[in-house]
Structures are given as structure tokens and as C-alpha cells.
Nucleic acid binder design. Sequence first.
DNA 1: CTTGAGGTTTTGGGTGACCAAAACGTAGAT
DNA 2: ATCTACGTTTTGGTCACCCAAAACCTCAAG
Lengths: 231, 231
Amino acid sequence: MLQATFSKSERETLKAIYRLTAPSKGLGAEAHTGDLADALGVSPGTATATIKRLADRGFADHKPYRGVVLTPQGRQAAVSAIRRHRIVERFLSDMLGYAWNEADRLAGAFEHELPQEVEDRLFVALHRPSTCPHGFPIPEPEEADIPELPPLYALEPGDVAEVAVPGSTDPAVVEFLATLGLRPGVLVEVREKHPFDGPLVLLVDGSARTVGERIARQIYVRKQENRKESA
Amino acid sequence: MLQATFSKSERETLKAIYRLTAPSKGLGAEAHTGDLADALGVSPGTATATIKRLADRGFADHKPYRGVVLTPQGRQAAVSAIRRHRIVERFLSDMLGYAWNEADRLAGAFEHELPQEVEDRLFVALHRPSTCPHGFPIPEPEEADIPELPPLYALEPGDVAEVAVPGSTDPAVVEFLATLGLRPGVLVEVREKHPFDGPLVLLVDGSARTVGERIARQIYVRKQENRKESA
DNA sequence: CTTGAGGTTTTGGGTGACCAAAACGTAGAT
DNA sequence: ATCTACGTTTTGGTCACCCAAAACCTCAAG
């Protein structure tokens, strides 16, 4: 498959459509121009223009006044863009020492101009990382979809999982999470789940921690295969 | 000094004017539009337009039909751009393992989008290198001029120096130089200099090597303070 | 002192990106 | 069934970039 070439804003638009139409948003969900414009920080007219350019080239399916979804080629391109972004984030955190929640902001500035070749070498130099610094998976080069992580609140007692915190999380929430030891990549084990949307009791780094439902729905987890082997 | 902001081609143009008006090209030399267009791989009309944009903002002094030179602000900006380029080259060679003559080509692709902040961290992560992989000095952030290196042929017997090879060197010449052990950063000591534009006899890595005048004018050296202490 | 060659600038034309505001569609409320 | 509110698309304008080709300078040769 010969690599199609996209401009910076086309790539950002692909990523945004991908996120807005992820399965968790409802099956067959379409991205609306206004939401896209907000996500991209751009006027609605500009969003429309970019969508049309993508649709003309066969990367998106645009039903005017209704919404837009990605074609399989568009989804492939979006996944590549996300892979690129996450690799650059890892570079910023692993090689330059940026905090995981700073990397995001800076990666966007230059990821689009990085030659593919350099991305590939960077990936190897970083020891082929499997997640970005937020804890989300880095997709394979030709992968068509990125597995979605379940929220922490979806775990059941006995489950062991690795924490992932979205970049869009409110900084105040991030700070609170840090006091609980809930940072990306940290392993947690669910001890109890209280009924009626009650809190979770977790084992974090050896200490017991309680987390409310609202917070436990805002962060995500990579479930580990090895379940708890308790007495 | 608040950082002026330049587009990609403006920065490339600043670098090109800087190079074309370096003291070694003759004092008070002006860069001609055609040469600039060639250096940038752009049509003459495009070069004129970019020059005018720079001149309007006070970074260049353009005398129509005559030539262009940089103002002090323009020179400062050009030096910053060169510093950026050389740091990115070092990243490509030191962290990603690219050969010194490949780094050049790739650096140009994304150096312009790199946030200043990231450049600064990268410089530190690379252990504050003093030269680019070609062997040329990385200027200080606020330096107004980059010291020019003398050609190898300017050395005299007894001198010890570090080799620098321009990126623009013919690949066949680079290959030939490699057979002599003349790679960027290598230390050489001049043993003899034959008269009437005759060859140099060097000590390279313990072996005696002879280099003709034409080649010895194409590569450059950083002279070491410690002169030869021979018997 | 004219003339022309060679280099420079201008002009006209195209793309991608952006915005503000006008025009337009869709769907819910009367 | 119309009206209207809201969101979307279109229109008109700006800017950086690029090119090809026309118009234009400059200077040196005749």
C-alpha cells in the first residue's frame, strides 16, 4: 500500500474523526462538523473544507448536514497518525524527560513533519514501546483499529490491570489521582466493588485506596491476563 | 529579545543568505536572488517574494537587482536556525544511529516545527554537544556569528586539528576520504606540506596519509590549541 | 551610446489554511 | 404545515507558498 500524503490539518482531522466515531461513542456514530471544529480549534467552515478534501480523496464519507465517517483507508490513515503521535510522546517522555501529561501538547507541534523513516528508527530506539506515556496502546503499523480500553470502573474484584489516563483529563483530577498513586502504567488490583455505583477499593503499589465511581469512569485500564491467585 | 516567528521557507532563506554572505565569500558579499533560488530549490520569483517578506520585517536589507544581506536581527535569526539544524542532526546521529551524511537531509524535514523548548531539552539530553555530526561548531543560543573553520590546506606542519566535512561534499569524495580515515571529528596532525600547491602528509589515527591540494581545500578543520610536542 | 544578454522582479494563476458572515437545510415546536 | 432555531455549508477575503512567463533592469560589448 503506497502511503498517501496528508497535510497537517488533514491528519489532525482524520485523528479527530476517528476519536469522535470510536465504537464507545455508539455504533455507527457519525462525527458532526461542529464537534470536529471544536476538537480542532477551528471555525466550522474550515472543518467543512477539510472534510470535503478528505472525502474527495476517498478517506471519508461525508453526508452533508448529517455527519462524516472514515472509510477503511481513512481509518488506516488515522491509526497511523495516532501511532505517530504516541511514538513521539514516548520520545518526549523517555528521551527528553517530559512528564506524561506535558508530552501530548508538544508532540502535536512536530509529529506531522517527521519523516516515516525517522518515526521507524525512533520506535526502535525507544525499544518498541507498547503504550504511550498515558498508558494507551501504540497500534501496529498496519493495524486497522486500536483496541479500546475499558474504564477502571468496569473491573471486578480480583482483576489486575494497568492504569491509563487520557490527556484530556482535568488537571485537578490528575493531581488528585496522583495522591492516590494512580499514574499511567501503575498496576492496580481490585479488592472490592461496592454496589449501587459505589466506590472501588483498590490495591495500588501495596496500599489500599478507595476511588469513587465518577473518577473510576474517567480513567481506563489494560487488563492483565494473570488474575489474582488469592487464598 | 522576544523571539520573532518565521515560516519554514523564511528560516531556510535566512540560513541560505547567511551561508552565501559568509566572510569567506568575500567581505561585504551580497547574496543574489538566483543563487538563493538555486540553494533553496525554488523559482527566482519565489525567492524574491520571500526576500521581500524578510526585508519588510527588518531581517534583511534588499537592494533590488543588486542583492541582499542580513541585518543584525536577521543574522541572529539565521544563527539560531543553524543551531537548531545542527542539534537535530546530532539527535539523528547520536540517538537514532544515522550516519553523519544522512542526518543532514532528514533534519531539514522537521527542524522548523520543533518547539524551542524541545530543542533546548534535546540539547541537554545530547550532553550539550559542541559540534554537529559533520564536525562544524554548534553556535551558542545568542551568538551573532559562527566562527568559520579554515580549510585543511591552511594548516602548517606541526598543527593538530579535528576534521569537518561539509554536507555538500560530493559523495564520491566522501567515500575517498573515508579510505584515508578522514571522517568528521577525527584528529589529524600535519607532518609535511609540499611546496607549489603540493600535497599534505598527515598523521591520521596513527598512519601516514597523503592528501592532494584540491581535496585538502574541500574539507575543514578545528585547530587544537595543543601543538605538536615532537622530539 | 545603443543594444542585447542575463539576471531580477512582477504578474497571473493555483493550493492549503484560516476566518467572518451570509445563505442554506433539517427538524422540532407551534 | 409552517415557522424558526440551530447547525452546516458557501462565499468572500487574507496569507504563505509555489510556478511559469512577461516585463523589467543593468551592464558590458560593440
